[in-house]
Each structure stands twice: as C-alpha cells, then as structure tokens.
C-alpha cells in the first residue's frame, strides 16, 4: 500500500498531540483523501506515553501503522522519539521537539534518561530534524503553541498546499489565540 502516507504523532499525555492530529486529519480531508486516525485514550493520558496514528491515501483500511511503516514520526518529546523509532520506515523522516520530560523511573532515580537519544537516532536514520519547539512558540507569542510549531514543521514534509493548512488551523483553534498560532505555524518553516 505504497500510496498510503503513514504519520505517527508521539508524545507525553497533556502535550497537545490530539490537537495536532485533528488539524492534520482536517487538512487531509480537505484534499479529498480517505483518512483514518487511531489514538488510545484513557489511562495513558495521565502523563503516560501517547501515540496518534494518522494514515491517508486513496483508500485506507487499517487505522494503525505497523512497525517500520511510518513515513514521518512527529515526536513532541525526545524519549518518545526514541521509543517509537522502530516504527519509522528506512527512508522516513523523524521530526523531534528538543524537549525532555522525565518519566517516573527517571524521576525516582531507578532509570537513566538516555543522554544521547538524538545521536542514536541519527546513527540509524538520515532524515532527522530537531527543533526547540518551546523557544519558537515563546518567540511567536504563545508558549502553549508548541504543537502548532510542530505542525508547521510537519507541513514542510507533506505535499499539501500551505493555504489548506492555514485554513484548517483557522477552523480548529480558538479565535483569540489565532494570531499567535498563525505565527507559531510559520516559526519552524
């Protein structure tokens, strides 16, 4: 099913991955493609590892992405980028927000946060992009818009007209945050 684009959005519960997937699936719908989105709610939302799978193309059957099949991984956090790396295709791209959120075993000192996660990822894949989403979000006037910064980055790697992205963003985010979000979207472009 090579005509299907597989995008994995990973992060930590509470980071805003769900809004990102909502905008992405809205964009894909606008260009008239079939789309399926899978995300697990519930217990993991309480600070656990979260993943949303977006698949689009002419016709999509399964809503989930098998290991080694993701064209793009959009990672909101470094450890999660590492955790989900086996899902990335050999020539796929991984876009990483340079943020560290310690999981409980690290907080308690019973496990170490991998110090060189990005280097390890680079040793296996050549398309590795790292940005400081929080810094870019703050510069664009809203520290909470990290997810929109990352969406802007993602849009660079998908063959979809920018106008459609902006239009979808306008429909999805609350009006009072629109200006900052528009700036945030451009920040990583």
């Amino acid at each position: 099913m090579s005509d299907i684009i597989n995008i994995l959005i990973v992060g930590v519960g509470g980071q805003g991955t769900i809004l990102a997937s909502r905008v992405l699936s809205g964009v894909v719908q606008k260009i008239g493609l079939d789309v399926k989105v899978s995300e697990i709610h519930g217990m993991a939302q309480r600070g656990g590892s979260v993943v949303t799978q977006v698949r689009y193309g002419k016709e999509v059957a399964s809503p989930i992405i098998p290991q080694g099949e993701a064209d793009i991984i959009l990672a909101f956090e470094k450890l999660e980028a590492l955790r989900w790396l086996p899902y990335l295709k050999q020539n796929g791209s991984i876009l990483i927000n340079d943020q560290r959120i310690d999981p409980m075993p690290v907080i308690m000192g019973t496990a170490d946060y991998p110090a060189d996660a990005i280097a390890a990822i680079r040793s296996l894949h050549k398309n590795v992009i790292v940005i400081d989403g929080l810094k870019l979000a703050i510069e664009s006037g809203n520290s909470k818009a990290v997810n929109v910064v990352l969406l802007g980055l993602l849009s660079k790697y998908l063959d979809i007209d920018k106008k459609i992205w902006l239009e979808t963003l306008r429909e999805t985010v609350p009006a009072k945050f629109l200006d900052a979000n528009m700036k945030a979207f451009e920040a990583a472009q």
């Binding site: 930590v12 519960g13 217990m43 993991a44 939302q45 309480r46 600070g47 656990g48 590892s49 450890l79 999660e80 590492l82 955790r83 790396l85 086996p86 999981p103 409980m104 075993p105 690290v106 496990a111 170490d112 946060y113 991998p114 060189d116 996660a117 390890a120 990822i121 040793s123 296996l124």
Partner: peptide, 11 residues
C-alpha cells in the same frame, strides 16, 4: 529502540 528506553507509566 537503539537505546534502553525507560518506561513512562501514567502517574
């Protein structure tokens, strides 16, 4: 994954 990844249980 290429490195040991500590689990991230819900809290």
């Amino acid at each position: 994954p290429p490195l040991n990844t500590p689990v991230r249980p819900p809290v």
